[in-house]
């Protein structure tokens, strides 16, 4: 009918107030708004419904919507807090907040633990670690003999599984990460502090005081 107001804002399903999200995360309000721009881009890339589907997530990571990857699957599952097969805006912001440079190491450590606890048993088992090493090698087209893979897993377990019960529990994990901080390198995304520059939001707010 040609009578749309340019002021009418239609948000994606599951949209949440940036002020609320900023209060619960490491982001400022304008960073959340910039993330909304990124979210819209991702969530309309294939299935245009304003929700991030697995294919869209894979496409954003690999430029290939069919690329199967154990680790991308794990990240997707952790982001999909409601476990309904899609990532909504609030889930996206809360999960990405873990990767913010200002987020405490303890939160990053806990997130990485859940990431690597493939079967949600409350500990990282040897078989899970081996599965992840094999997945990484296959993804990277690296070929190592069975003996070497076993040695890498054994060696890591020797260092991490301090009570020697064949699994890494959360306390052992925290201790291991403290001794090997490089493990958490990928849990911080410097991009997140420049997000307002990369994805400027054109919404003007009366309150833009994004003090820390």
């Amino acid at each position: 009918m040609g009578c749309f107001s340019s002021k009418q804002i239609k948000h994606t399903p599951g949209y949440e107030d940036p002020v609320l999200l900023a209060s619960e995360t490491s982001f400022t309000v304008s960073e959340v708004e910039a993330l909304y721009e990124l979210f819209k881009k991702l969530s309309f890339s294939i299935i245009k419904d304003g929700l991030i589907h697995k294919e869209e997530f894979q496409f954003a990571l690999f430029r290939n919507s069919n690329k199967k990857n154990l680790f991308a699957d794990r990240i997707f599952d952790l982001f999909d807090v409601k476990r309904n097969g899609v990532i909504e805006f609030g889930e996206f912001v809360r999960s990405l907040s873990v990767f913010h440079p200002k987020t405490p190491e303890s939160e990053k450590t806990a997130f990485a633990f859940r990431l690597y606890d493939l079967r949600h048993t409350g500990s990282i088992e040897r078989v899970e670690l081996k599965e992840m090493v094999l997945a990484l090698l296959s993804e990277s087209d690296l070929h190592l003999s069975e003996d070497i893979v076993e040695a890498i897993v054994d060696n890591t377990f020797k260092q991490a599984d301090s009570n020697g019960d064949g699994k890494i529990d959360e306390e052992e994990w925290k201790d291991f990460v403290k001794r090997n901080p490089a493990i958490l390198k990928n849990m911080t995304l410097p991009y997140l502090v420049d997000i307002t520059m990369s994805f400027p939001s054109f919404v003007v707010h009366s309150d833009t005081s994004d003090a820390d």
Binding site: L38, L42, A60, L61, F62, N69, L70, F71, A72, D73, R74, I75, L96, F99, L115, Y116, L129, M132, V133, A135, L136, E139, S140, L144, I148, A151, I152, V153, N155, T156, Q159, A160, F176, N180, A182, I183, L184, K185, N186, L189, Y191, I195, S198
Partner: peptide
């Protein structure tokens, strides 16, 4: 020596865990 590699450090290099690609235009 590969046997001294830390398995978790190895895993953390996965492309599937490199979320910075989400921000590429």
């Amino acid at each position: 020596r590969p046997s001294l590699m830390n398995a978790f450090e190895l895993i953390s290099t996965s492309q599937g865990l490199n979320l910075s690609t989400l921000f590429e235009k």
